[in-house]
């Protein structure tokens, strides 16, 4: 039994009911799907009990009907397993996912990027503001809400270049 299988069986015995879907992809990628409400609890277990000390990346995916946030978690002790945790966000108008910055400090910028480019709200984030786009991006002249979050699939480039016109206060 490889290490990857061991990690997966530990996860399944502990959180069997809360993990919606679990499979091994390729040789050493564990892919699990959880609900946004159980995310922090399961992530804490992965970090502290399974000893995965490092968060690699947080990516948003726009599936047109719903959003998905994908976490890649890694351990650096010679075991090549990566746990890929996926959270499906059904509510397209107000997508929300809890922050994991309390577990991995590296999540800070990754989560800000997801908020910045996809408009997915990260609850309990210590410093949630735009990172790659200008901080006052929301005050630019936009025609539609989809122009606020450029990585969404329905984003369309405006015909003329952006102009900075702050709202009168």
């Amino acid at each position: 039994m490889t290490q990857t299988n061991t990690h997966l069986s530990h996860l399944k015995t502990k959180y069997g009911g809360k993990i919606i879907e679990a499979e091994i992809q390729g040789q050493n990628r564990i892919k699990i799907r959880v609900n946004a409400d159980d995310l922090v609890e399961i992530m804490e277990y992965i970090a502290n009990e399974l000893k995965f000390p490092s968060l690699e990346a947080v990516s948003g995916v726009d599936w047109e009907t719903h959003f998905e946030v994908v976490y890649h978690i890694d351990r650096w002790d010679g075991d090549p397993t990566i746990i890929q945790v996926q959270v499906k966000l059904e509510n397209r108008d107000n997508p929300e996912v809890p922050s994991v910055t309390s577990i991995w400090a590296s999540a800070d910028w990754h989560e800000r990027e997801v908020f910045d480019l996809y408009g997915i709200r990260i609850t309990n984030h210590p410093n949630l503001k735009r990172l790659l786009l200008p901080e006052e991006w929301d005050e630019y002249e936009h025609k539609h809400i989809s122009e606020l979050y450029p990585m969404r699939r329905d984003y369309k480039l405006p015909e003329k270049p952006f102009s900075f016109k702050p709202h009168p206060k």
Binding site: S54, L55, W76, G78, W104
Partner: peptide, 18 residues
């Protein structure tokens, strides 16, 4: 280093041979 997501030479300089 692990918690803040260091990789490569920065991680190796902090004592993890990865």
């Amino acid at each position: 280093a692990l918690n803040l997501g260091a990789t490569g030479p920065v991680l190796r300089a902090s004592g993890i041979q990865a």
